[in-house]
Design a protein around this nucleic acid. Structure first.
Length: 117
RNA sequence: UCAGAGGUUCAGGCGAUCGCGGCGUUCGGACGGUUGUGCGAAGGUCGAGGAAAGUCCGGGCUCCAGGGAUGAACGGUGGCGGGUAACGCCCGCCGGCCCGGCGUUUCAGGCGCCGGGCAAGGGACAGUGCAACAGAAAGCAAACCGCCGGACGGGCUGAAAUGGCUUCCGGCAAGGGCGAAAGGGUGCGGCAAGAGCGCACCGCGCCGCUGGCAACAGCGGCGGCACGGCAAACCCCACCGGGAGCAAGACCGAAUAGGCGCGUCGCGUGGGAAACCACAGGCUCAUCCGGCCGGAACGCGCGGGUUGGUUGCUAGAGGUGCGUGGCAACACGCAUCCCAGAUGAAUGGUCGCACAGGGGCUUCGGCCCCGGACAGAACCCGGCUUACAGAGCCUCUGACACG
RNA sequence: GGGCGCGUAGCUCAGUGGUAGAGCACUGUGUUCACACCGCAGGGGUCGCAAGUUCAAUCCUUGCCGCGCCCA
């Protein structure tokens, strides 16, 4: 994801909080599943922010192709400490978050259908 | 060998593998008449720093303004000379201060020589101003305790004295005291006591000569000591500065809306060549008054311009080596090398080996865990400042050991 | 990229070269059966940090640290 507009739009999607990051998923946002990363100054100095973003991106590269929500935008918001925590923990958090986001997204769609009916 | 000071270099190393960004090469298929364009793949190659940081200075580059010069205002700089594109940076020197050693001296201090270190170092006779508390007195000289002399006098004490105390008058600024600072310092002479009152040396000021590009230094003469401190108080003097910044600037430009022009179509009445005016007509719920409108549609073209894209965009006051000149900063010459160009922003994940470091256990063989300093390019360059684990090298000083 | 401002007691702020203050808050005490109000007394400060100028620095100068704001 490369447009500020898309990142702001993801705020209206489902939200999953883990110790290492916050995941926003906006379903039906684009033809293909996409990912973006937000790292604020609360994470640390420039080196810590770069490192946090790169590690999140690497983890997403390994995990998302298998279990991403189709046609959805995935925004990962880094939290303090992401530059130091073990990479395995990052992977575990991401798998867990993708699983929860998938269930929440389908549940939201289901409620929409129910209220419509 | 150890300790200290100063300077300088490096910035964890080697390898495997999966990924990322730039640039060539080859291949693939799509569009196209072609040059070619963008997409994908393979393989090649390059891919953060000494501070990339803070943004404290100086430039290049770009745009804007401006006829030149000078001045005003504002801001900055401040010994002298050199280096540099330039600087508030760097180098050298001068004067100052501090530390160490040696010499002189009875000691201290001072002075001389040698070595090392430190600093934002113009002007206090251009003017205005500031100095709490203490102190008699804080900038102009003055006199609290004091020192010295005098008193026909007065008082007290004493047997008395030319004695002592007190009081009064006068001289002095050595000693004490206050203070951050009290109007040259040391010594000798001198004097009632004292004092640059006189003398010697030192300091200070003025003049002259000599040396030096200069800051300044040395020597000689005169003065007889006043002209104290603060300008990182206002200020004065000299010198410097046009403004903005790559989000500068240039180019392309979808959809929608709006602007301008042209054409086609359309266009109640009267006046007028036209502009326009008046009246119909319409809108403002209706009426009166007032106000506004008094053509819409279609097509073509032009210019502006938002999201966005392209460019500026990385070969440069460039790095390395050698030589020459210079005390040095640095300059010149030759050879050689190409060393990031991202734009929601490329350097990451995993693993192995050896090397520093920290912690724990220990049967002293070793084992386990943690873990690589500060920190991430955003137009480029020269400095300054700040952060920083550890390692190497050079110079100097001191101690110990050996020869 | 460029510019401006602020850090003083627990909080909000004065002070601008000479031993640092106000209001609220806090503590003790008086008043009240008790509390509030009120009266009296009191404690509390690396003046963000460091270096410098000065006899003397919260104040002047420089460099850092933190926070806030404005413009492109």
């Amino acid at each position: 994801m490369r447009k500020r507009r898309d990142f702001l739009a993801a705020n209206s999607g489902v939200r999953v909080v883990t110790p290492s990051f916050i995941l926003l998923v906006k379903p039906e946002a684009s033809p293909e599943a996409r990912a973006g990363f937000t790292v604020s100054r609360k994470v640390g100095n420039a080196v810590a922010r770069n490192r946090a973003r790169r590690r999140l991106r690497e983890a997403a590269r390994l995990v998302l192709p298998e279990i991403a929500v189709p046609h959805a935008d995935h925004v990962f918001i880094a939290r303090a400490g992401d530059a130091e925590i073990p990479f395995a923990a990052l992977l575990a958090d991401m798998r867990h978050a993708m699983d929860a986001a998938g269930r929440k997204a389908s549940g939201k769609a289901g409620r929409k259908m129910a209220s419509r009916g």
